[in-house]
Design a protein around this nucleic acid. Sequence first.
DNA 1: ACCTGAACACCGTTCAAGT
DNA 2: ACCTGAACACCGTTCAAGT
Lengths: 227, 227
Amino acid sequence: MAAKNSGARSKRTRRTSERPPPVQEPPLSRERIVTTAVELLDAQGIEGLTMRRLADRLGAGVMSLYWHVDKKEDVFDLALDAVLDYRASPPGNEPQDWRGEAIHMLEDWRASMLRHPWSASLLPRRVLGPNILSRLERLSQILSRAGVADTNLNAAIWSLWNYVMGATITRASFDVSDDDRAAAQQRLTRLSERYPTIERSRLLLDDDWNGAFRKGLGFLLDGLSPK
Amino acid sequence: MAAKNSGARSKRTRRTSERPPPVQEPPLSRERIVTTAVELLDAQGIEGLTMRRLADRLGAGVMSLYWHVDKKEDVFDLALDAVLDYRASPPGNEPQDWRGEAIHMLEDWRASMLRHPWSASLLPRRVLGPNILSRLERLSQILSRAGVADTNLNAAIWSLWNYVMGATITRASFDVSDDDRAAAQQRLTRLSERYPTIERSRLLLDDDWNGAFRKGLGFLLDGLSPK
DNA sequence: ACCTGAACACCGTTCAAGT
DNA sequence: ACCTGAACACCGTTCAAGT
């Protein structure tokens, strides 16, 4: 009873068993597709998401997906936004600690994406889904309450966005290719007369990503703070 | 004589004409491959670069490429670094205006990538080529000379890197999908009770990308400046 | 040393059809 | 309304072979 539907592609013979749909194969739906897509992306990375594989995991034919979704791109859009959900303490709270609030939300943003490393390299090409928008909304409110001038508000939001995106994308890509990074540092050491400064500071070997993220974010918030 | 080799795929009959290789079809080489790859990427975008198409443009068979290059990935790596060359006034100059120097170099970085929008979405997954490294080296020297403490140096470099990458990637992706952006703003206006703050500040309609970039960079440099 | 075509194991998506 | 298989026009890369 356990591994019933695993190995055998026995779609044809399903009707013979009499039970009313026993949870086992709920009908296809956008939701189910997105959930499974995220699973697949987590497991196999961005290259691993294939319409054929996705359909397989769902126990459906490839073309069935196209009833619920227009193009493969849509699956990417939906998967990305699905991953960026944010629940935080209600907005009105503690208007004094805007810095802490901003840091919390942005670190969570980064963490959410690093939990699904594919999301980082996906984001650049994707549309702004509702979860992304509501994070931007939240950020805007925090900064506004903090006293950032209206004329600076958009620039401030985008600069934080830029910082977080850049950091996350970089982090995720280094994660994937740790060997490449080692190779780069090797080359760097070999050519230490060409890159003396970053060689000396061990720029590529510094492993404290979280610390660097927080520190840099601190710099930026310092610069943003209304004087 | 002009459009000699354009339409006809007459590889077979080439030997009949007697001339010594008249510049027309220089032998395949890594360099030629990279140059053509950049052209192709500029023209067709990231999806447009295909080993088959690339070989076609070079008047060679697909598999000939694989003598000069291991995998398609390599072509991407090489194309990316090729685009990031930086020539600036010699490093020793004007030690006083570090801020101007940093801004110049980072704006040039962004501009170089925006000239080849595919580079922005490529970078996250790529190795650090020599041109990228030498920019980081340069940045490190500037900040060091500016008096940034050694303990802050790496964090400072990465935060600037993050900012520039985030900004560039975002800019490039919005460039590609201007309609998507319009659609997003539409949805946003429709749901203005959900996103009142960013709706009011017209976050998604603000078109002054260059201004926003400079402003945000200013914030960050302010935060970085040794007090 | 350099280049090649045929073949393999994949893709996303159109289309006409089934229930 | 929802699902399907066959077919089309592509991919990157292995392999055995040519010069």
